[in-house]
Design a protein around this nucleic acid. Structure first.
Lengths: 163, 163
DNA sequence: CATTGACATAGAGTTAACTCTAAATAGTAT
DNA sequence: ATACTATTTAGAGTTAACTCTATGTCAATG
């Protein structure tokens, strides 16, 4: 087990392989992130091997969160640049998080609408299997009531849904 | 205003331009979907122009829903193929919707976790602006209590978050 | 009958975010 | 010293889902 970077009890740093294990990201991806300016704090030892600090791991966690919130890599880089500029960019960063929250709220609302439609389909097909055919399910009283409820709701899933 | 396809009171069909207006999709995208097998019911008139029926529009609505649920185009094509095969594929289609519902539930739960982290950041930066610096906000009692709450929760947002 | 605008096809180009390849160097184990 | 594994770089390749370009047809308008 060759570990190029000595990671003693003093926790000087982690090799790229250790970060791969801890984060689940590939070494390729870690180098790609660095090239894209997402990890400006990663250092190299005298042999040119990357040494990741605990702070770098925390940044990776933050990057994952921002990615999951829907941010693109170049937008994450912008955020990191703002961070490096210090307190003069507090406003920009706050606005970014406010926008992220709004985007997440919109996305969750959107997913809820999709969920309603998919759940209806699940019920429809469960009934279809019980009755032996999709046509029979389509004519089913309970199904028709459910469908009506869905169609009369504010979002307009089509009057009649294909499939 | 030349409309190649006569759309009389009997509603024989829609031109691609009309479908563009109704769906917000581009003509390019509509042709691309068709090429990918997503619209096998679209017909052409004697001049080779596409004629979309109301059913085709319903399919487009269904396709949008499946896309929003996270399905890829080739998976949507599979669903449409199952549909065309009739009641012998009811089980496969039900399973697809069951899987979609589970995926949507997981996605919504994931987004909720991200939302908690982003909301914390929003609070942190609001406090930072009020106090004049990020360091001051980091040492703030209320912020520290919030952070502790977030870190002690089942999901493990890092012990200390960068940025 | 020439122009215009919508539409057709085939195929090339774009974008984001990886993902991989090749060839070289570094570190560890025996 | 040798073998083996981890890491490095530059740059090419991949994938999904469009998106656009070039060129040509067709129908209605002036």
């Amino acid at each position: 087990m060759a570990n190029p970077i000595q990671n003693t009890e003093k926790s000087k740093g982690f090799s790229i392989g250790e970060v791969v294990k801890q984060t689940g990201l590939s070494a390729h991806t870690l180098r790609y992130y660095e090239k894209e300016g997402l990890l400006p704090f990663v250092t190299k030892n005298s042999s040119g091997l990357r040494v990741y600090s605990t702070t770098d791991l925390q940044w990776l966690s933050m990057i994952e969160c921002l990615k999951d919130s829907g941010l693109q890599i170049k937008e994450i880089r912008q955020y990191i640049e703002w961070f490096r500029q210090g307190d003069s960019t507090l406003k920009q960063r706050l606005e970014l998080f406010q926008n992220r929250r709004k985007a997440l709220e919109a996305e969750m609302a959107r997913l809820q609408v999709v969920m309603n439609k998919i759940s209806f389909k699940e019920t429809l097909y469960t009934t279809a299997i019980k009755l032996g055919s999709l046509d029979a399910a389509d004519s089913d009283k309970t199904i028709q009531r459910l469908k009506k409820k869905l169609f009369d709701s504010p979002d307009d899933f089509d009057k009649r849904v294909a499939g």
